[in-house]
Each structure stands twice: as C-alpha cells, then as structure tokens.
Nucleic acid binder design. Structure first.
Length: 241
DNA sequence: GCCAACGTTGGC
DNA sequence: GCCAACGTTGGC
C-alpha cells in the first residue's frame, strides 16, 4: 500500500497518457469520498489519548491544544522485494540513501487517513523510517520532509500499480511529499521492543501508551507526539535487548 | 505462508 | 445507513 517504492522512471513523470477520457463514470463518484473522512485522530481512541498529548508539559508553547499539530511522523516502507502488479515494492533505507540527494518522493499512498497526514506534514519535520512487512520490522533511521504535499503523479499513470482511474488531474485525490535521509538510528530499534514498551506504558501511563503503530496497526503514515518520538529515539542509546 | 485486523465496497 | 463480503496490510 502506501509506501513509496521504486523510483523508477522519475523522468517519465511527464507521461501524458491522459487516461481520463475513457473513464467517464468517475465523475460523480469522485467528490463524495473526499477528504475528511479520516483526518481527525482515531475516533476510537480519542478519549484515551490525545488529551495528554502534551501532558503537562510546562512548555506548552506549541499551542497544540485544540487541533493537534503533529510534528513528527513514522513512515513505513518495505525493505524486501514484493511484487505488486509486476512492480517491485522494495524500498529500504539503503535504497533511500542511494537516491540522488538521498531524497525521494513518497508516492503511492492510497488511504485517506494516511494521505491527510501526508498533507499535514511541514517542511523540516522529522520522521522515523520504519521497515515493515519483513523479517525484522522496526525503526532504522530518520528522514525529514523537504517538500510539502503536492499531487502524486503515479495516480495518473496507468502502468503504475497505484494508478487510480477515478482521480482527475483537475482535482487530484492523492498527494505525496519529498523526504530526505537524515541519519541511521544508532542501532536498529525493533518493533518487538517498541511494542514491549507500549504494553508496559498502557499499564503505567508511559509515553507510548497510545502509539498509533499499535492502535492503528495498518496505517502506513502515522503522526507521533513529541513524547513518543523522544522516547523511541531514546531507545537507540540503550543496549539491545 | 497463515491469518487477524481492519479499510472498502456494494446490496439492500 | 447497515452490514456482510471482500481485499489488503503486515506481524509472526
């Protein structure tokens, strides 16, 4: 789903195959689903979590109160080969490092909630690069947003596995951002370890008690609170366990 | 490779 | 608008 993948023919972006015409039906269907459906935090978990989102915190400066302004993210990507419509979805952090400028566009997100989070990303914000659907899932590095949301060109490319025949160029449904490699974490931080803390924190009220990695397990783009980001990052200083 | 979780679709 | 069928995600 939603992750980036190969950077194949970036050059081909232009690609003008204008599929549109033929689809016709789309028109009406289109507008309805629109945006909001999932912008807000997890309905289900709302009560539990976001209130303490800035718990305490003295600094409060942020003004995050009402509408939480997320400032950190977690991006899932698959480091192992898997074909989707004949195209390899593999994109590990090493693949990112190999890109020109160590930068890539995060294309292929086709889930409204994930897309809305993409659109909320701001220049310079940092995100964990997470390896999913693989032998050892977990956080492997840090990336930053170097270009805010703009239309994902792959939605108009019929040859792309994530082509969306219902999206019109005049009103693109899907967005992407550009991210750049910042650094590897000092060590691999496995999902199992993060999960163990999450479970402990659910009992004692610690910072990972509501982490979306566990409360919305299938979301490929997730926001992290400052506390969540700091806590996970602090694990890189500890000995693997 | 299995399968639980969960998002999406479509009949009614 | 409900909900069963279906498809996808992604840990294990």
């Amino acid at each position: 789903m939603p992750w980036p993948s190969r950077k194949r023919d970036k050059g081909a972006v232009a690609d003008k195959k204008e599929p549109d015409a033929k689809i016709a039906k789309t028109e009406e269907t289109q507008k309805k689903e629109e945006e909001e459906k999932s912008t807000k935090p997890p309905a289900g978990s709302s009560k539990s979590g976001w209130k303490n989102w800035k718990k305490a915190k003295e600094s409060d400066a942020g003004g995050e109160e009402s509408k939480q302004t997320y400032c950190h993210w977690l991006l899932k990507s698959e480091p192992e080969s898997r074909l989707e419509k004949g195209v390899d979805m593999k994109f590990s952090i090493d693949d990112l490092k190999a890109q020109p400028n160590q930068t890539t566009f995060w294309e292929g997100v086709r889930n409204y909630q994930a897309r809305n989070f993409l659109r909320a990303m701001k220049l310079g914000q940092q995100a964990f690069f997470y390896h999913s659907n693989c032998k050892e899932p977990g956080v492997v590095g840090i990336v930053k947003i170097v270009k805010e949301a703009y239309p994902d060109h792959t939605q108009f490319d019929q040859k792309d596995p994530h082509y969306d025949s219902t999206s019109r160029k005049e009103n693109p449904k899907w967005s992407m951002v550009d991210v750049q490699f910042v650094r590897m974490t000092k060590r691999f931080i496995p999902l199992s370890e993060i999960k163990a803390h999450h479970l402990a924190h659910k009992a004692d009220g610690g910072p990972l008690k509501n982490m979306m990695l566990f409360t919305r397990q299938r979301l490929s783009i997730q926001p992290l609170t400052q506390e969540e980001f700091d806590f996970v990052l602090s694990l890189e200083e500890e000995k693997p366990h």
